[in-house]
Amino acid sequence: MFTPEELKKYAQTLWWGLETARTRPYEKGDMVMLRYDLDALPLAEAMFDLLMDKGVIPVPRANLSTEMEKSFYGKGDDRQIETVPPGDKPLMENLNGVISLIAPASLTHLKDVDPARLGKAAVSRKFLREIMEGREQSGDFAWTLCMYPTQALADSASMSLEEYKQEIVNACFLDKEDPEAEWNVIFEQTLKVKQWLNELPIRRIRVKSESTDLVVTPGEKRRWLGVSGHNLPSFEIFTSPDWHGTEGVYYADQPSFRSGNYVKGVRLTFKDGRVVESDAEEGAEFVAKQLAMDEGAPQLGEFSLTDRRFSRIGKFMANTLFDENFGGEYGNCHVAVGASYADTYAGDQSELDQNLKKQLGFNDSALHWDLVNTEPKTVTAELEDGSEVLIYENGEFKHE
Results as ranks from 00 to 15, higher is better:
3 T>A: 04
6 E>G: 06
10 Y>P: 05
10 Y>V: 03
10 Y>I: 04
10 Y>L: 13
11 A>F: 08
15 W>G: 02
18 L>C: 07
19 E>I: 01
25 P>K: 11
34 L>Y: 05
35 R>C: 11
38 L>E: 15
46 A>G: 04
46 A>Q: 03
49 D>V: 09
49 D>C: 11
57 I>S: 08
61 R>G: 00
65 S>D: 10
67 E>I: 11
73 Y>W: 13
75 K>G: 04
77 D>N: 15
80 Q>I: 12
81 I>V: 15
83 T>P: 00
84 V>G: 02
91 L>F: 06
92 M>D: 08
93 E>C: 05
94 N>F: 03
97 G>V: 07
97 G>Y: 06
100 S>D: 12
100 S>P: 00
101 L>F: 05
102 I>T: 12
108 T>R: 11
109 H>T: 05
113 V>R: 09
114 D>A: 11
115 P>S: 09
121 A>P: 02
136 E>R: 15
137 Q>W: 00
157 A>C: 08
160 S>M: 03
161 L>Y: 09
167 E>Q: 15
169 V>A: 07
171 A>L: 07
175 D>Q: 05
178 D>S: 12
179 P>A: 10
179 P>W: 09
184 N>A: 10
185 V>R: 15
187 F>M: 14
189 Q>M: 14
189 Q>S: 12
190 T>S: 14
191 L>T: 14
192 K>L: 13
198 N>E: 04
198 N>T: 05
199 E>V: 03
205 I>Y: 03
206 R>H: 13
213 D>I: 04
214 L>E: 01
215 V>Y: 10
217 T>K: 14
222 R>S: 07
228 S>N: 13
231 N>L: 11
233 P>K: 03
237 I>G: 00
240 S>W: 00
241 P>D: 09
248 G>C: 07
248 G>I: 06
251 Y>C: 02
252 A>G: 08
253 D>F: 00
257 F>Q: 01
257 F>V: 00
264 K>L: 11
265 G>D: 04
267 R>N: 10
267 R>M: 14
270 F>I: 06
271 K>Y: 09
279 D>C: 04
279 D>W: 09
281 E>Y: 01
286 F>R: 10
291 L>M: 11
300 L>C: 03
305 L>N: 01
312 R>H: 12
314 G>M: 01
333 C>F: 02
334 H>E: 01
341 Y>F: 15
346 A>C: 06
353 D>E: 02
354 Q>V: 13
354 Q>P: 00
354 Q>S: 14
356 L>E: 12
359 Q>C: 01
360 L>F: 09
366 A>W: 05
370 D>A: 06
370 D>E: 07
373 N>F: 01
375 E>S: 08
385 D>Q: 03
390 L>Q: 12
393 E>M: 02
396 E>T: 15
